[in-house]
Design a protein around this nucleic acid. Structure first.
Length: 103
DNA sequence: AGTTTGACTGGAG
DNA sequence: CCTCCAGCCAAAC
């Protein structure tokens, strides 16, 4: 397995994030699989966290595999709740209901 | 060029 | 359910 090209990798990540519908979420690892780099969830996190604001991407719809929001970004939860995403008592999004099924 | 650093993940306790 | 941790891998030091 060759090493991914940073530029292309980042673009692929952004192209997926752009498609996440309102009221739905997806995990870093899921995105990694979708773009063909299943072991690169950390890289997906890096790409999303550095996404240029000018791209207007719905980065708040990306959460970790357990449905937890990003550390030190309390606004993420607000943004999700504003579009109807509900959180469980343990501060996790109920993935059974809000996980995006790209199909 | 070696070490540290994460918006991660799955599993163990 | 929670915390801790090894495994993860390129970017940033």
């Amino acid at each position: 397995m060759p090493r991914p090209d940073k530029k292309i990798f980042y673009q692929d990540v952004y192209s997926v994030v752009k498609e996440i519908p309102r009221g739905k979420v997806i995990s870093y690892g899921e995105i990694a699989c979708l773009i063909g780099w299943s072991n690169y969830s950390r890289m997906v996190g890096a790409a999303v966290s550095k996404a240029p604001a000018t791209l207007q991407l719905p980065c708040h719809r990306v959460v970790n595999s357990s449905g937890r929001t990003a550390p030190d970004w309390e606004e993420q939860r607000i943004l999700l709740e504003e579009e109807g995403v509900l959180f469980k008592a343990n501060d996790c999004v109920d993935m059974k209901i809000f996980a995006w099924e790209w199909r």
